[in-house]
């Protein structure tokens, strides 16, 4: 069985976000780029499955749509233990564009399980995974918090409101991964970092396709009003504020 993990290259989650060019572009100076946190957890789970001989997973590949500048992020995925990588050489314009590019390289490549993170921490769209599944005509399960393979069937847990469902599904499939899938992301060991240098990154050229959306400009959130402090000896004051001023209780 072959697993593909789609990875997105995003600013470190503690980055101070700033924009340039009339708020039209992200200011990338000094930004540390990382594997999108959910994709990193998905990759961790894929590698754990491969380590478990009983799961029948032989290979883990990562795929990424981006320019050469995102190769360090791909190398990091290889250092974590992915066997090889595919990079589609294009600026990721929107999720539709990205999913279309990914589907093109995936459609005849024989992957059984495709993992996508539920959200990328830049555009917060929660869309690429489902779009990819529809492009491929594969079934998809969203909000997946556990996945394993058993006798050729894939068993997943998906979150529903106020609970969970255990689902089985035949391959090929797209699983859209959320929290719970792995506790901590796998840390690349020194050996992994060394071998990552020689692992193949296969670069393919993009297909021509129009994006469906475009960002016109950005805006910073309005600063919140200053916090009103209440005497710790008299929390009743807080309750009164919540009741009479905020009117929320």
């Amino acid at each position: 069985m072959k697993i593909l993990v789609c990875i997105s290259n995003v600013p470190d989650t503690t980055t101070k976000i700033k924009f340039i060019d009339d708020n039209k572009k992200l200011d990338t100076t000094g930004i540390q780029w990382i594997i999108n946190p959910w994709d990193e957890l998905s990759l961790t789970r894929a590698l754990d499955m491969k380590d478990d001989a009983a799961s029948g997973v032989q290979k883990v590949t990562v795929a990424h749509v981006g320019l050469g500048s995102s190769e360090p992020t791909i190398r990091k995925a290889l250092a974590m233990g992915a066997d090889d990588a595919i990079r589609i050489n294009a600026e990721p314009i929107d999720a539709f564009f990205v999913a279309a590019q990914l589907s093109e390289v995936i459609k005849n490549a024989g992957f059984d399980i495709i993992l996508c993170g539920i959200e990328s921490s830049d555009y917060n769209g929660s869309t690429a995974g489902g779009m990819l599944a529809e492009f491929l005509g594969y079934p998809s399960v969203s909000s997946v918090s556990s996945i394993k393979s058993e006798n050729g069937q894939i068993i997943m847990t998906r979150e529903i409101d106020g609970g969970k469902e255990i689902i089985s599904m035949p391959v090929p499939l797209v699983a859209i991964i959320q929290k719970g899938i792995a506790k901590e992301p796998r840390i690349a060991a020194m050996r992994g970092i060394m071998t990552a240098r020689t692992k193949p990154i296969n670069v393919s050229q993009p297909i021509t396709i129009e994006s469906l959306t475009e960002v016109i400009n950005y805006e910073m959130p309005k600063p919140r009003a200053a916090c009103k402090f209440v005497d710790p000896e008299n929390p009743k004051q807080l309750v009164e504020l919540l009741q009479n001023e905020a009117k929320v209780i």
Binding site: S126, E134, V141
Partner: peptide, 20 residues
């Protein structure tokens, strides 16, 4: 949960851009 599962598939099905 449900909207996030369906909106992206619909987007491709109908060539409709998403504002999420």
């Amino acid at each position: 949960i449900t909207g996030k599962a369906l909106a992206p598939r619909l987007s491709v099905n109908l060539s409709a851009g998403i504002g999420s």
